[in-house]
Design a protein around this nucleic acid. Structure first.
Lengths: 231, 231
DNA sequence: CGCCATATGTTTACACCGTACGCATTATAG
DNA sequence: CTATAATGCGTACGGTGTAAACATATGGCG
């Protein structure tokens, strides 16, 4: 090790603990902000602050904000491990759907990233969950168009259910949740909206896990029945 | 009619064709912009331009932008006519679901308005579609919690399916659609993602109407079977 | 009619956003 | 060492929502 290298290393260690900016560090920071403060909180200035750097410095490692969001999408999807297709088709679909739901709830921002933007995913790893989902759905003998159809049906169900779930359970804390519901209920006239009125308590306090599984089982059973003659 | 009124009327007719700003005119303009240019195009300045007025003038009739978006939500939902509950439960659910899908596709922005914002709807008319949906679902003898469960399952399916549908069919024109899909397909390595590769043509050109009905029938049949003993 | 209060629209200004551009610093290559 | 490239920073422009002060016009009342 030469004098210069030693000196340099010492410099970095002593003078500046700040490690250099990186594409990955930027994406990680953006994901952290998105998960903790919501997608709308992710701004270039906010990411810069998170990394102790000015916003414009990010542009040395990233084309623009779109690029950041694309990267975050790939990051999340690339780290999403879907259970492998098994012989038990019904159980594979069930576990796959639950895994998708867990992932979407863990990173609510990716719903918007995936479905309200033109840009499709770019890396192979990010597309793997989709590949596995198609492989699972196909396995009981579905044709390719039928597989795509099943993907849209299951995918739509999972996506929409989690979206409804998140839109209702947004508040952080039981107390806020309860108060928000009570306040809403006060604005609903029972004589004009009887069904809504009687339903409100069950909207406020319902078992989303069980409800999700219930609808999921309907779809699985229905699709399974369609493939009766092929197995 | 006095001299003054005449004069005034003449003034208004001659000098200024511009009718006064109104809460409703603002909401209508916002809705128009949202449907034609997307939710992200709706800004106070853009609404003002649409009405030949400065942005700040809107604040004489509207609390803030949230208030505008709340109003647009109520406007759309208030004008949304859901088919009345009929004796034929399966058909009522089918037609209800299709009506929801049509509405969400006609006003894609309301998906975001309804599910990515805290503010619930305020007017009775805006809540009526939900009331009717609950009434329909309840009719074959479901308990109230079961009705809520069914609402989440059907609602989630409809919402998610339309979201997927819209996220894929965003491009205006057949040519763009085709080119975007071809470009995406070029980035997908067939040996690593065989299922995705074989599925891509069917993703690019699929019958969403038929696919939607397919999944819908699965849910209807499944739920109908559950109520077997109660009818 | 004159006068004033209220309602409505405008202007300006501030803090945020994404990002184009130019400069300063640092690391590396020749 | 110097020349070049990479990296971070500061400033600036046009966009956003909206607070505050101001201008104008309208309607009521003597």
């Amino acid at each position: 090790m030469t004098e210069e290298t030693l000196h340099k290393a010492q410099d970095e260690g002593a003078r500046t603990t700040r490690e250099p900016l990186t594409h990955n560090r930027i994406l990680a920071a953006a994901l952290r902000i998105m998960d903790e403060e919501g997608l709308e909180a992710v701004s270039m200035r906010r990411i810069g602050r998170e990394l102790g750097v000015e916003a414009m410095s990010l542009y040395n490692h990233v084309r623009d904000k779109e690029d950041v969001l694309d990267g975050v999408t790939d990051l999340v999807m690339g780290g999403f491990e879907l259970p492998e297709p098994s012989e038990d088709w019904e159980n594979a679909v069930r576990e796959g759907a639950r895994a998708w739901r867990r992932m979407l709830k863990a990173h609510p921002g990716v719903i918007t990233l995936l479905f309200e933007r033109k840009h499709p995913m770019k890396t192979v790893e990010a597309l793997r969950p989709m590949e596995i989902a198609l492989e699972i759905l196909r396995s009981p003998g579905l044709s390719t168009p039928e597989t795509v159809q099943a993907f849209h049906v299951f995918g739509g169900y999972i996506l929409g259910f989690v979206t409804m779930e998140l839109s209702q359970a947004f508040e952080l804390g039981e107390e806020n949740h309860r108060r928000a519901h009570e306040e809403f209920a006060r604005g609903v006239p029972p004589e004009q909206l009887p069904r809504l009125t009687e339903s409100l308590p069950y909207f406020a306090d319902c078992d989303f896990d069980a409800e999700f599984d219930f609808g999921l089982e309907l779809l699985i059973a229905g699709l399974w029945a369609r493939t009766e003659g092929r197995r």
